[in-house]
Structures are given as C-alpha cells and as structure tokens.
Design a protein around this nucleic acid. Structure first.
Length: 392
DNA sequence: TAGGCCATCTGGTCCT
DNA sequence: AGGACCAGATGGCCTA
C-alpha cells in the first residue's frame, strides 16, 4: 500500500484498516496478536507469556479525529511551545475499555489535557471526543482551517512515526532477547528483565575480561619465574591462600569447580561444584546448570583461558570484592541456565539484590554474580578494553 | 492493592 | 526535510 492509499484510508476514517495496512507494510512487524514478546514466547522464554494482546487492542480500537476538528490537534506548529516535550500518556489508548484519559473524562490531570492548557501541542492524533472542546475550537477556527489542509498528512506521519518507533523498540527488544540467550543466568520462572540482562551482561564481560587479563598476568609471571625473578613470591602467596578460606570466608574451591565444569562442558557429563555466594552468604542449593552447544563453545573458550593457578590468583586478588558462592549441581542440556530449588539472588552492582539467580558464572568462575563494586579493573590494568579491541 | 515491568504514544532534539 | 533517537507519560499485566 502506498502513501496515496493510506491517505485515502485516512479520509475514509477507516483507521482500523489503516492500522492494519500499516502493520502489514512492514514484514518485520509482528501482527500475530502478541505484544512484542512473541519471539520470546515462541522460544520458551522464562518470563510467562503475556496473555494480553495490547498492541492489537490498541491499534484496532484507536479512534482518531481524522478531520482534525479538534483545535488542540492543530496546535503543534502554532503554539508558542515551551514546557515539557513529553506528551504523557497515549491519546490512542482511549480505545481501551478501561483506559483513556482524554475525552473530558480522563482520570488523570496529566498528559495531553494538561499540556494543552500550557499551550503545548496536545497531540496530532486526537480522540473524537476531544472535538467537544468548543472553546478551543472557536478560538482557533482560523488556525484550524489553515491547518486542516495538512491534518491528514500530519496524522499519517504521526502514525508512521509511531510505527517506526514500535519497530525500533521491537528491534531493541529482539536485541535484548538475543543478549538473554547468550548470557548465562539462572533460569527463572520469568525471563530476565532488561535491567537484569544488562547488568548480567556487564558483569559477564567484566569477568571475561578479567580472565583474559589474568591469563596474561600468569604468562608474564611465568616468564619472570623462568628468568629467576620474583615469581616465587607469587607462587608462595597463592599456595598459602589456596589452602583455606579467603578473607571473605568463602571456600576457595573454584579451581576444582572450574575444572569440573570444564570437564562437563567438554565431555558432556555432569558436574557438581560450588561457587559464588548469594548476597547473604548462603549457598544456593542444588543449582542445575545446563549448557547449550553455543554456550558450551563460549564457555569453553573462556574456561580454557584460565588455569587453576589463575583461578587461585583471581580469587586471592578479587574474592574480597566478590561475594561468590553457588552450589551448582549441573548437567549439560538444552540451554545455559541454572535452575535452583530456591529463589536465588542476583547480585547487582552496588550490592543490590533483586531476588533472582545468577548462573553460569557458576562453574566457569566468570562470576556473573559480581557483587559489590564491580571490579574496577581499570585500577588493575589501564588498558582494560585492550583484550577486546580486536573485536572493534 | 501496590509495585515492577512493559508496550505504546508522543513531541522534542539530533543527525544525515 | 525526514528519520532516528530519546525520554516522559500512561495504562495493562503480573506478582507478592
């Protein structure tokens, strides 16, 4: 459908059909009745499928003043402007059975009505009921007539803009979902929220970076040792610390854990290892770790960067910063996740617990559950991003 | 019922 | 000029 046809639809007041056409003008736009989570639903997202089809409902119930008889809808290019740029609320939501703040009966004093009173454009897409605002209509008759010529075009552009915005947000959500699928995390009844996803991703990257840096430090230390330098000091220090709990009181069995997990990834077997702590210091019981082929590949790459000595070194240098301990009992399966029998705890940056689990950091010692003060690796290495520059 | 999360609308701003 | 991006506002859904 081209712009002319869209305009014709506008003129016919058939916005349901218009919306329908707008939807189908873009093949990427999901019009199957889901609300933007369809891909997640289809992929077995851990977050329950939303039963509402709000998107469809909204679009199919929109009622616009196509002739722009509402004066408020003509003010976008004539008002003095100023004030907030945020319209607040969706005028098109008036189609919802219980929603809608416009039409003179709105439950809220905010949004379009308020903005109109401030002389700010209320909306270029106004509900039909808004045309009852006779005072505004009388006072802006000339302007209305003047703007009427472009009303349909503005409406169409607004709808197209809305459509683009939806598309943009959908692509953003797709990216979030892709990120969820590659970030190891505890499988919950619900999927990871966006903030959780970002936080886990950040911590995951930080820890992978640390692994690489540790590897390099290890190599450097080995070189020094071979040359008879100070390497012995490092080794003795590690040896003394690896025998017992670290300062945080958490057993340092991550070496065995990692080896165990690595072996599981490599051989497809089960493993039972402990690592990472909940924020309260309690162990997460019987976490089941499973890894997808893709994650196995990823994790294997990460794992093989870290030797037991490196892990000890890492623990010695960072466990005081990371509360780590997860009791994992895992096996390889369909997706990388950790299933816990109790509500695990997600350790967010800054000691924030949001009551969800942290997964795979678990056996691979990458510690997704980085707790307080996400390690300031910049302090350790000024070239924090150096290991990844090749990917830029 | 409150709070969290989300989708959507919306207009301003920035960029090409 | 038009599109992308952004952020405020709103209402729906879900859970504790």
């Amino acid at each position: 459908m081209d712009a002319t046809q869209l305009t014709e639809l506008m003129g016919s007041h058939d916005f349901m059909q218009l919306q329908h056409q707008l939807h189908h003008n873009n093949n990427n736009y999901n019009t199957d009745g889901h609300n933007g989570l369809s891909s997640e639903s289809a992929e077995g997202s851990s977050r329950p499928v939303r039963r509402a089809t709000r998107r469809t409902s909204q679009l199919s119930n929109n009622t616009y003043d196509l002739e722009m008889t509402d004066s408020s809808s003509q003010s976008d290019d004539t008002s003095g402007g100023g004030g907030s740029s945020n319209g607040g609320g969706s005028a098109t939501n008036t189609g919802h059975p219980s929603g809608g703040s416009l039409g003179g009966q709105g439950p809220s004093s905010r949004g379009r009505v308020q903005q109109t009173s401030l002389g700010v454009c209320s909306s270029t897409i106004a509900p039909n009921s808004a045309s009852s605002n006779s005072s505004n209509a009388n006072g802006n008759a000339n302007r209305r007539r003047k703007g009427a010529l472009n009303a349909k075009e503005r409406n169409m552009r607004r709808l197209e803009s809305n459509e683009r915005e939806r598309m943009r947000m959908h692509s953003l959500n797709d990216a979030f979902q892709s990120l969820r699928e590659v970030i190891p995390h505890v499988e919950m009844e619900r999927r990871l929220s966006k903030i959780e996803t970002l936080t886990l991703a950040k911590n995951y990257i930080i820890n992978l970076t640390h692994i690489i840096l540790s590897k390099r430090n290890e190599e450097a230390a080995a070189l020094e040792l071979n040359s008879g330098a100070v390497g012995g000091v490092l080794l003795s220090s590690l040896a003394s610390e690896s025998g017992g709990p670290v300062a945080s009181g958490i057993p340092t069995n991550s070496s065995a854990t990692t080896l165990c997990f690595e072996n599981a990834l490599a051989n497809g077997g089960a493993f039972d290892c402990a690592l990472l702590a909940a924020t309260d210091g309690s162990l997460l019981n019987a976490a089941t770790v499973t890894a997808s082929p893709a994650m196995q590949s990823i994790q294997s790459q990460a794992i093989h960067l870290q030797t037991p000595m490196e892990q000890q070194q890492q623990q010695a240098s960072h466990l005081s910063h990371h509360q780590q301990a997860i009791h994992g009992h895992g096996h390889l399966g369909a997706s990388m996740s950790v299933q816990t029998q109790q509500q695990p705890t997600l350790i967010l940056n800054g000691n924030t617990s949001v009551g969800m689990g942290v997964g795979i950091g678990v056996g691979v010692e990458v510690g997704v559950g980085v707790g307080n003060n996400a390690p300031n690796f910049a302090d350790i290495n000024d070239n924090f991003d150096e290991p990844f520059r090749e990917f830029l």
